[in-house]
């Protein structure tokens, strides 16, 4: 049995103009292998081919050449879609429905039985913190609320593979943190997550492996820690050390031909600071 959640071989997409002439190479010869149960980050600047990759995997676009497999099935196989959850980069939702109705509609498309559907809808609406607004039409939702309901619809079918395109865009830091916790929770449940994001800190914190695309070409792929680690640079994080002790350590390192690049007080991230302040104000 194929253990990979996502596999692509020479996946290429060339956009053509009206006259079928080659216009833009959006993706060139992409070879990916994403293992089951990992959180995989797909990074790259705008127009790098991230969304094209996702659309090719979902069958929204057809490859010019190459093949892709999801959960052991060809990506064009309809059966595989029942095991996938997808959150697009914008909240493309039916604004004339309310939260319950939209989840019910998508639940029906997965053929989830009525009783089961109702239970899941109730749980998901609570999980994304929209239980107070469940009867309100989506046209009255804020961008953040739409993002939350978008995420809820992406996991209505309890998918094995979740594809999230910019899941935290438009969310405040608290909601953003909740989404990240939710993604880590997916991992604990054994789900595979593909995360496309511009927010590198998010990816760094939660992804096991990443791939960086640029101009449709895969630049690098690997384990986040391995990619970020510099073998010849060592970092000590020490607490409760006096200035005198710091000087002595520096002298010792220099005596052993070490080159001290910087000595700083450890700084927490802005996100950590923000969350601490909000938590304290409560």
């Amino acid at each position: 049995m194929d253990n990979s959640a996502v596999r692509t071989e020479g996946l290429t997409k060339v956009y053509k103009d009206f006259w079928r002439r080659k216009s833009v190479s959006a993706l060139t010869n992409l070879n990916l292998n994403i293992e089951r149960g990992e959180i995989f980050g797909l990074l790259g600047p705008n127009g790098s081919g991230k969304t094209t990759t996702v659309k090719l995997l979902l069958g929204l676009l057809f490859p010019t050449s190459g093949k892709s497999w999801l959960l052991g099935h060809s990506s064009i196989d309809l059966i595989v879609k029942s095991k996938i959850g997808f959150l697009p980069e914008e909240s493309y939702l039916y604004k004339f429905l309310n939260a319950e109705e939209i989840l019910d509609f998508y639940g029906k498309l997965f053929d989830i039985p009525k009783t089961e559907r109702r239970l899941r809808i109730d749980k998901l609406i609570r999980n994304v913190g929209l239980h107070t607004y469940r009867k309100r039409q989506l046209s009255q939702y804020s961008k953040g609320m739409l993002r939350r309901i978008g995420l809820a619809q992406a996991i209505i079918n309890d998918p094995e593979l979740v594809i999230l395109d910019e899941p935290t865009s438009g969310l405040d830091p608290i909601a953003s943190r909740e989404i990240k916790d939710l993604i880590l929770d997916f991992k604990r449940q054994g789900k595979t997550v593909i995360l496309c994001s511009h927010l590198l800190a998010d990816v760094q914190n939660i992804c096991d492996r990443i791939a960086i695309l640029n101009k449709g070409v895969l630049q690098v792929m690997g384990n986040v820690r391995e990619l970020l680690s510099q073998k010849d640079v060592i970092e000590f994080v020490v607490k409760n050390l006096s200035d005198k002790d710091v000087q002595e350590v520096e002298t010792f390192i220099k005596s052993r031909s070490g080159n001290v690049l910087s000595i700083n007080h450890h700084a927490s991230t802005l996100e950590e600071l923000f969350l601490t302040i909000i938590q304290q104000s409560k």
């Binding site: 929204l60 029942s82 697009p88 914008e90 493309y92 039916y94 998508y106 997965f110 053929d111």
Partner: peptide, 14 residues
């Protein structure tokens, strides 16, 4: 145009 079709096409519906 409004890309709501993504929501349906990503589900197991022919």
């Amino acid at each position: 145009e409004y890309r709501t079709i993504y929501g349906i096409l990503s589900k197991p519906v022919s």
